[in-house]
Amino acid sequence: MDFAFDARTEELRSRLLAFMDEHVYPAEEVAEEQRAGLASPWDTPRVVEDLKAEARRQGLWNLFLPDAEYGAGLTNLQYAPLAEITGRSPHLAPTALNCAAPDTGNMEVLSQFGSDAHRKQWLEPLLAGEIRSAFAMTEPDVASSDATNIETRITRDGADYVVNGRKWYISGAMNPDCAVFIVMGKTDPDGQDIRRQQSMILVPRDTPGLEVRRAMRVYGYEDHSHGGHAEVVFTDVRVPAANLIGEEGGGFAIAQARLGPGRIHHCMRLIGMAERAIELMCRRAVARTAFGKPLAQQGVVQNWIADARVTVEQLRLLVLKTA
């Protein structure tokens, strides 16, 4: 089995590693200082816009999107090691490259399944990094990992659809730049084929009846860097029928197309986080002395580092094979 990356991936890796060293890592402390002075914890530090401008200038932009018309035209296997590098600075790098969730998946949906009007109104500003978005699938009262359980209703009423339901852990919803939600719900709740009951529809944030009720925590933490996770309630939210993505009953298939690639992206970013942690662990082990010798010379510390290295190598190979 050939474990090497192809020439284009290696070239992009080299450029991205240099971008991280020259721009992203130095911006981490700046971003933290700026966050402390923001009016809202959900606002974006100014330095992020500087990073985005530099990434665009260097052609390190929309790398995630396999559609060459809109993105870099990379396969998942080519993009995976780039996602790993961005994971080394998860609060800055993905956003700097316009490769942050949930916008990545939403852009994939719009590029693959959206109408020309959808692409003009929503995809183009997302591709340009001018707005952010949210994806509303998960619900509190059902096991939403099985999307056939979803209870939100999308009901046809003349020239419109009316959305009613409650969603939570909706990524990106707290971001003040979040301009649109892709909402998954049932247009045919009694349909015989449970995988044809669901549809997806675009709901602009300022639509009456859409309420971003509160920010939610995951294991005690709020994710301020990507727009948080929120409880969102839709009460008689009325949007034009043209806002439907694809056809009625196509929502389940669209969800599978959207979520599959994103799992690879997330896993590789986590591997990047783990790699940086191992790096810091090794530096600490060499620099810190205890009981008369560096930690690096303590057998148990060497074992911990070795165990971490083996685990990360296994996981990387598994994710790349999946990609």
Rank of each mutant, 00 (worst) to 15 (best):
I182C: 10
T187F: 06
Q192G: 11
N149C: 10
K167H: 10
G185F: 12
L110K: 13
R166K: 11
P140D: 11
V162A: 02
P189K: 01
T187R: 04
A173L: 04
V162W: 01
P125G: 02
M174K: 07
T155C: 00
E151Q: 13
S115L: 05
D146Q: 09
T152D: 01
T152H: 03
D157H: 14
H118S: 09
R196K: 15
Q192I: 01
A147H: 08
I194W: 04
Q192N: 11
C178T: 15
P125K: 06
I154R: 06
V180E: 07
I182Y: 08
I131W: 07
S115Q: 04
A173E: 00
T148R: 14
S111W: 05
R196H: 13
D141F: 06
V180L: 06
D157K: 15
I131P: 01
G129H: 04
I182T: 06
W122A: 01
E151L: 12
Q112M: 13
R132N: 13
R153K: 09
M184I: 05
I150C: 07
D160M: 10
G114I: 03
D141T: 12
N149F: 04
A128H: 06
P189F: 08
T148Y: 05
N164S: 12
L110R: 12
K186Y: 03
D116N: 10
I150Q: 14
R119E: 07
D188L: 13
A136T: 06
Q192C: 00
P176N: 04
Y169K: 05
L123T: 01
S133C: 13
T155R: 15
E151H: 04
E124D: 14
L126I: 03
V162T: 05
G158D: 10
S115M: 02
A159M: 09
A143R: 14
M174Y: 07
R196D: 12
E124L: 04
F181D: 02
D177P: 03
R119K: 15
E108S: 12
G105V: 10
V109W: 07
I170N: 12
G158V: 13
V163I: 15
D193Q: 07
Q197A: 12
D160N: 14
R119Y: 09
F181T: 03
D146G: 02
G191N: 11
F135A: 08
L127W: 03
D146V: 07
D160Y: 08
D160W: 07
N164I: 04
M184K: 00
T138M: 09
F113V: 01
M184E: 05
M137T: 08
S144N: 04
D190I: 06
P189S: 02
D160H: 13
D177S: 07
A117W: 12
T148A: 12
D141A: 09
S133Y: 03
P125V: 05
T155P: 09
D188K: 15
Y161C: 02
A159I: 04
S171E: 14
T152E: 00
A128S: 10
D157R: 15
L123W: 02
Q197M: 14
A134L: 08
T138S: 14
Q121P: 00
V109I: 15
G129N: 02
K186P: 00
D188I: 08
I194G: 00
P189I: 03
S145A: 11
Q112V: 01
N164Y: 06
